[in-house]
C-alpha cells in the first residue's frame, strides 16, 4: 500500500496501533490516544484501525459507537461535563445545568457553541462536594455559575 497517498490521520492510526503491538484487545487504548491527538475518531480511520488490529470494520465501528467517550465529529476547544447523577441532583445539578445551558443557548447532548462542547456525565466520583463538573481536565466541586464560567474561561485560554 503506498503510504504517501494516506491521509494524515491514517498515519496516526498506524503509529498508535504499532505502539500497542497491533494487538486487538488494545483497541480502546488506541481510540483514546487517537481522540487525545486529533480530538475525535474520524470514520475515515476505521478501515486502518481494522487492518492494523486484524479486526473487521464492523467490530471497530461497534466499539467506537458503544462507548460514550468516543466522538465521531470534532468537539469544541473546551469540553464541559456537568454531572447529572443522583448525588449531584440532590444538590441542584439540574437547575445548574439549565442555567448554564440557557446562557449559552444550547441543549445538553453534545451541543457545541462558541468552541465549547457540553456533555452530560454520570458521576465524577466527587459526590460529597456536589454538584460536580469537569471543564477540560479540571474537576470542579460545589460547582456554581461563577466557578464554571471561570473554569471555562481559564480552559479556553
Amino acid at each position: 500500500m503506498p503510504v504517501t497517498a494516506e491521509r494524515p490521520e491514517t498515519l496516526d492510526v498506524r503509529t498508535l496501533c504499532a505502539a500497542y503491538g497491533n494487538q486487538a484487545p488494545m483497541l480502546l487504548e488506541v481510540l483514546h490516544d487517537l481522540q487525545e491527538k486529533i480530538g475525535y475518531v474520524p470514520e475515515a480511520c476505521v478501515p486502518a484501525l481494522a487492518e492494523c488490529l486484524n479486526l473487521s470494520k464492523a467490530e471497530v465501528h461497534g466499539v467506537v459507537s458503544f462507548y460514550h467517550d468516543f466522538r465521531t465529529a470534532p468537539g469544541g476547544r473546551v469540553t464541559v461535563r456537568i454531572c447529572q447523577a443522583e448525588a449531584c441532583r440532590s444538590m441542584g445539578a439540574e437547575a445548574l445545568t439549565e442555567q448554564i445551558l440557557s446562557r449559552y443557548g444550547v441543549s445538553l447532548s453534545e451541543a457545541t457553541v462558541a468552541g465549547i462542547t457540553f456533555e452530560p456525565v454520570y458521576c465524577l466520583g466527587n459526590c460529597a462536594l456536589a454538584p460536580a463538573a469537569m471543564v477540560g481536565s479540571e474537576l470542579i466541586g460545589r460547582a456554581d455559575g461563577p466557578s464554571l464560567d471561570a473554569a471555562i474561561e481559564e480552559a479556553g485560554r
Partner: peptide, 22 residues
C-alpha cells in the same frame, strides 16, 4: 482505561471491554 460506559462495572462487561470489545 474504560471509556464512559456504566455497564462496564458489571464484571462480564468489564472483561469484554478489557478484551477490546463492546
Amino acid at each position: 482505561r474504560g471509556a464512559g460506559a456504566y455497564i462496564c462495572g458489571e464484571e462480564s462487561s468489564m472483561l469484554n471491554s478489557i478484551e477490546g470489545r463492546r
